[in-house]
Amino acid sequence: MNGASPPAPSIADELEELGEELRQKALPGERLIETHRRLADESRERRRRGDLLDRIAECLPINIFAKDSEHRYLLANKNVRKLAGRENTEVIGKTDFDILPEPIARTLRASDERLRANGGMQVEELAIEPAGGEKRHILVGKTLVRSEETEQEVLIGFSIDITESKRLERELRDKIALIERQRAVIRALSTPIIEVWDRVLTVPMLGALDSARAGALMEDLLADVSRRGARFAILDLTGVEAMDTGTAAHLLKLVQAIRLLGAEGIITGVPPSGAKTMVALGLDLAGVTTLASLREGLWYCMKRMRAGAAA
């Protein structure tokens, strides 16, 4: 028995086969076109980011730079070029020794070498002296990164001129020192420590007496009692206009501290407001000599010293 012959392909089938064959042959070309399109898009994006970074570098009021492993400039914004006094074409590919005075170039090269030796992020203050110009202070920050294209280390960094800030800082320190000296003079004038007699000190106080002023008085008076070997220290409050509760307690502690140094503390001229404050606080004044006036305090010291001499 004869077998049936296969049916002849239709025109539609032949066209489908031909189309599939053409598609297979065209696929590599389509892939090539797609790859080219993708690479072109990536190139445009890199250029766009590069242009943006360039504009940022040119606009920022700081020096921005990059150097290769041979210390040659790969990038230098307009502030770097202005510092060097050169055009971009005269900076790129050059070293600091090619574009800057030798003393400045040596300072910058030493800074770069420290970074390459230590790695990490380096921030330091450098002093440079332009030829014929004033000494300048710059704050430099830099680090090392690896280039994606060359696989080499690239030094990138920035620097800021802080000369004016340093000048203002010095002026501020000088003003603070002057204020401290003036404060010490005012303190000495407001609570002068006077040696009115051999080994007899007097502290006439004027105006308002607060805790801060009483604390400073304790420090100065105890130092003088010890240095002069004083026998008596008279705290005269005749000119004190007012005192707070903390001050009253502080004065009592001062008298006790004077006693520990082997001297006797005497309080004279306590104002009515001060007496009221001390009573209200319940301070124990049993061991404290209090007299009405500075004159009585001086007489007291003289009599005690004569009695001691006679004995």
Rank of each mutant, 00 (worst) to 15 (best):
G269C: 08
I162T: 12
A275H: 04
L201S: 10
A310T: 04
V270A: 06
K135S: 13
V240N: 00
R48W: 12
D68E: 09
D198E: 15
K78P: 12
T163R: 06
I193W: 10
P271N: 02
I56D: 01
A12D: 12
D13M: 04
D112G: 07
E58V: 09
A263Q: 02
S293W: 13
D96I: 00
R231C: 03
G207I: 05
N79H: 08
G157L: 07
R46N: 09
I194M: 14
G3I: 07
A188Y: 10
A12L: 07
S293E: 12
F65V: 01
R47Y: 03
G157A: 14
G133R: 10
G269K: 00
R295A: 08
K67T: 01
S190W: 09
A263C: 14
Y300Q: 15
Q24G: 06
T268A: 11
K94H: 13
F97L: 13
A12T: 13
L206S: 04
R170C: 09
G207N: 08
M205K: 08
C301V: 06
G3L: 10
G132F: 14
L22Y: 10
M278S: 07
I156C: 04
T245S: 04
E124H: 12
E264W: 10
V279M: 09
M302C: 06
E296Y: 08
A127L: 14
V225I: 11
A230N: 07
I33V: 10
M302Q: 05
A280C: 04
